[in-house]
Simulated assay, not measured.
Amino acid sequence: MSEPNYTQRQRQLRNIVVMALADGSIGGREVALLADRCVELGLGQAELQAALEFGLGDDAALELPPDESTREEMLADLIEMMAADGVLAETEKRLFALAAAHMNIVGERLQEIITSVVEKQSGHGRKDAST
């Protein structure tokens, strides 16, 4: 599943796409978040297209990063994507919970990550859509 020619940033984008598609659809706010995150990761349209194709494929699955800081960043990205459409689907919650558990990020540390993302989204984080 983990292809050597894919960089960590490309894998990160693919993980975000997998979460975006976990509920069976992808809306405008999710597409906008994917595009913004793609730019932040220094990736282009070709990488976004490849990530979308991966997410729509039969082999789509999260790829868990090897180091703790990257794992926490991935969880933060997943939380943002889960919340992007304003609906927390059961499939998204299960996927997130499984990823966190497999990476052994649970309890207080997981709550800290969730809280930091929520605070960031409530005005202290990514660019506001109106700017």
Rank of each mutant, 00 (worst) to 15 (best):
G27P: 03
G27N: 08
G27Y: 05
G27M: 10
G28F: 06
R29L: 11
R29H: 12
R29P: 04
R29S: 07
R29F: 07
R29N: 11
E30L: 00
V31Q: 06
V31R: 08
V31D: 00
A32P: 07
A32L: 13
A32E: 13
A32S: 13
L33K: 05
L33Q: 04
L33M: 11
L33D: 03
L34A: 08
A35Q: 11
A35H: 13
A35F: 14
R37F: 06
R37T: 08
R37D: 01
C38D: 02
V39C: 06
V39S: 10
E40F: 10
L41K: 08
L41G: 06
G42V: 05
G42C: 10
G42S: 00
G42F: 05
L43W: 04
L43E: 05
L43T: 08
L43N: 09
Q45R: 14
Q45G: 03
Q45K: 12
Q45M: 11
A46V: 12
A46Y: 11
E47M: 03
E47A: 12
E47F: 00
L48G: 12
L48Q: 13
L48K: 14
L48D: 14
Q49G: 09
Q49N: 13
Q49D: 15
A50W: 02
A51F: 02
A51I: 01
A51N: 08
L52Y: 10
L52G: 06
L52H: 11
L52Q: 07
L52W: 09
E53Y: 05
E53F: 09
F54N: 02
G55E: 04
L56D: 14
L56M: 15
L56Y: 14
L56S: 14
L56K: 15
G57Q: 09
G57N: 12
D59I: 15
D59G: 13
D59H: 15
D59E: 14
D59K: 15
A60C: 10
A60T: 03
A60Y: 09
A61K: 14
A61V: 13
A61H: 14
L62Q: 04
E63H: 09
E63C: 12
L64N: 01
L64F: 08
L64Q: 08
P65W: 03
P65L: 02
P66K: 15
P66L: 15
P66I: 15
P66C: 15
D67F: 00
D67G: 01
E68C: 00
E68Y: 03
S69V: 11
T70R: 05
R71W: 06
R71C: 01
E72C: 09
E72N: 09
E72V: 10
E73P: 09
E73D: 14
E73Y: 10
E73A: 15
M74Q: 04
L75C: 08
L75N: 02
A76I: 05
A76R: 09
D77T: 02
L78F: 01
L78T: 03
L78A: 07
L78N: 00
I79Q: 00
I79A: 06
E80D: 12
M81L: 13
M81E: 08
M82L: 03
M82R: 04
M82D: 02
A83E: 12
A84V: 06
A84E: 00
D85T: 02
D85N: 01
